[in-house]
């Protein structure tokens, strides 16, 4: 019997997951800050356990255009991880990195797309390496897969994975930036057995 039931996560598990999110997002933000060579402030990540039908609402509605960067995970922890941000925020990030001034209506250039993919890679890498260090578990991530579409459609992919084990999804939202604050969302979807491994390795 698995220790974790996502539909009934107790407050201790919630705290642990929040802390993992916190540390992961912190590392990811530092990595991003080094990449764009600017200071980035980060808010306290919000950890939300949401019903599927409410999932897209938190991003600003199921039809909000977003960029999703997905990795599949192997090793001691298997599953998926996704980094998602609104399309307008993706433009802000790309502009910071490449010095352009594109907006939501503009198409990304090849260069922009590859920059975005690299941002995703670095953010996810930092996130996963902190999780790996914390738990002493081996986590190998795939190459990034990127897609731009409606939030609901992008979120359907991790939601379906969560759907196999329960009726709720775990979403970690972290905000960075000061003036034009950018919100990024991390969605970590370990397989149920991997949840146990993570919690066990932390002595819970």
């Amino acid at each position: 019997m698995s220790k974790v039931n996502l539909d009934d996560v107790d407050s201790l598990h919630m705290d642990v997951l929040r802390e993992i999110g916190n540390i992961g997002a912190g590392n990811a933000t530092t990595a991003l800050s080094q990449m764009i060579n600017a200071r980035i402030d980060m808010g306290v990540p919000q950890v939300n356990l949401l019903e599927f039908k409410d999932l897209a609402e938190i991003i600003g509605g199921a039809e909000t255009p977003v960029v999703g960067i997905l990795f599949s995970l192997e090793g001691d922890v298997s599953g998926m991880m996704m980094f998602m941000l609104e399309l307008k925020d993706a433009h802000v990030l790309v502009n910071l990195l490449c010095g352009g001034d594109s907006g939501v209506g503009d198409e990304f250039t090849e260069m922009d797309l590859s920059a975005l993919q690299e941002i995703g890679n670095i953010i996810a890498g930092a996130y996963l390496s902190s999780l790996s260090t914390l738990t002493n578990l081996l986590i190998i991530s795939s190459v990034p897969y990127m897609s731009m579409d409606m939030a609901g459609a992008i979120l359907s992919v991790p939601a379906i994975e969560f759907g196999k084990v329960g009726d709720k999804a775990l979403l970690i939202e972290s905000c960075f930036g000061e003036e034009d604050s950018i919100s990024g969302y991390f969605i970590l979807i370990p397989e149920l057995a991997s949840y146990d491994k993570i919690l066990n390795s932390l002595g819970i």
Binding site: A56, G61, A62, E63, D149, M150, A151, G152, A153, I154, L155, S156, V157, A159, I160
Partner: peptide, 14 residues
Amino acid sequence: VAPDVLTTLGLGSC
């Protein structure tokens, strides 16, 4: 029933 409209937003792999 008519004339109501049913909608679902942002279908992906679903």
